[in-house]
Amino acid sequence: MQLVPTQHYLILAAVLFCLGMLGVLVRRNALVVFMCVELMLNAANLTFLAFARERGDVTGHLSAFFIIAVAAAEAAVGLAIVIAVFRSRGTVNIDELHTMKH
């Protein structure tokens, strides 16, 4: 069976990572920005898995599980904060969050 070469996974992960980064930079909705960060984390996950598969090593798989758990915890707190923002301002548009500056 012809295996997909590791490079392909890595390139996919890199593309996902860059997409996520771009999303964080340009999207205006706080929730979408947050999802883009999740995309970046998953790109890292994919990289771990690709390398683990190449080497037949379990460390990468293990890492992926930990990252998923951490991402879940982060999501819980993150969504709570987004809700707090929405409550105090009635919007989750990042553009409007600049009370503190200079």
């Binding site: 930079l25 600049h98 500056k101 200079h102």
Partner: peptide
């Protein structure tokens, strides 16, 4: 330099990038 600090989270991320 202070005016770089625009208060906008995304421009912060852009500078980090």
């Amino acid at each position: 330099l202070r005016y770089l600090q625009s208060g906008d989270a995304q421009s912060y991320a852009a500078i980090m990038t």
